[in-house]
């Protein structure tokens, strides 16, 4: 299904169907997932010890960062309780990762998330970690819960590779969604395969990329150590925070206004056109944890 075929009726219908079948949702406060109703809480956490000298990830520190984020997002005393708020033992959980060759979701983070899900009582065989091929994967086909995680980087056509964009693999022909510089990516989130299933978003800002070079869009020169994670229930709010950081880094590095081109308009439109979440910083409750130097926000 391409955005051209997604009528307003289908848009509303898919949302209603998903809500009707999600019994888990009925047991949780509506405010947790009614992303635009109130301020979206987003955690930006940084810890310099998460990356070693040659960029190797310190798994223990990464775990601590995610744990701390979970406690703050869900207002609990420990991470385990936070996870149990969003994952039940009978869930089938898809962890939507991103395996772009040059800057992928760290396997260390994938494993931390997987273990956290298992600690909620979900059997290992009911957990899948995938990027390409999700549409053919039985876990993702039958998932009742999704965890969305990817690094943020610049992108030639959408401005940035974002959490909202990470679901493009849930459509048959991703290139169909490139029109108008990927303006309507958020509409993918209303499709039955993913609608209302996402429990958590983790935007990886350990080593984000702030500029594209060449046909593959990667150059180590334009990747920097930010040592961060951006965590939240609202993918749009998380993306908005990440985007602001990328834009600030570009201005610092190039020593001039260097707007993303094309602009990452799909993030704002995810809010204003598709009502997926909050891109407006007045509706984002941003909690910053960790050192301030080089934070940009």
């Amino acid at each position: 299904m391409s955005p051209k075929n997604l009528t307003r009726r289908e848009f509303i219908k898919t949302g209603s169907l998903a809500a009707a079948t999600g019994t888990f949702l009925l047991n949780n406060p509506k405010s947790l997932f009614a992303l635009q109703d109130e301020k979206s809480r987003v955690v930006l956490i940084r810890n310099k010890n998460v990356l070693g000298e040659v960029g190797k990830i310190n798994t223990e520190v990464l775990q601590q960062m995610l744990d701390e984020s979970m406690k703050v997002i869900f207002d609990t005393k420990d991470a385990s309780t936070a996870w149990k708020k969003i994952i039940k033992p009978d869930d089938v959980v898809g962890i939507k990762t991103n395996v772009w060759n040059y800057l992928r979701t760290p396997p260390e983070l994938e494993n931390i998330i997987k273990k956290s899900v298992m600690d909620c009582g979900v059997a290992e065989e009911k957990i899948g970690i995938k990027d390409r091929g999700v549409l053919k994967d039985p876990i993702f086909q039958n998932a009742t819960a999704l965890i969305n995680s990817r690094p943020m980087r610049t992108h030639y056509w959408s401005g940035v590779g974002s959490l909202v964009k990470n679901y493009i693999m849930f459509v048959e022909k991703p290139s169909d969604w490139h029109g108008d510089s990927c303006a309507d990516l958020a509409a993918i989130w209303k499709l039955p395969v993913v609608a209302n299933k996402t429990r958590l978003n983790v935007l990886v800002m350990l080593t984000p990329q702030f500029h594209n070079v060449g046909p593959h869009g990667f150059s180590p020169e334009y990747v920097w150590k930010y040592y961060g994670l951006i965590v939240g229930v609202d993918p749009v709010a998380c993306d908005a925070v990440g985007l602001k950081i990328i834009e600030a880094k570009r201005k610092e590095y190039f020593n001039e206004e260097k707007p993303l081109n094309p602009p990452a308009k799909h993030i704002e439109l995810a809010d204003t056109r598709h009502l997926l979440g909050n891109a407006d910083f007045r509706k984002i409750d941003l909690i910053k944890i960790g050192f301030e130097e080089g934070r940009f926000i």
Partner: peptide, 12 residues
Amino acid sequence: LYDYIDGSAEMF
């Protein structure tokens, strides 16, 4: 081209 370089294809 899209199969090869994903969204970067649009630039070309």
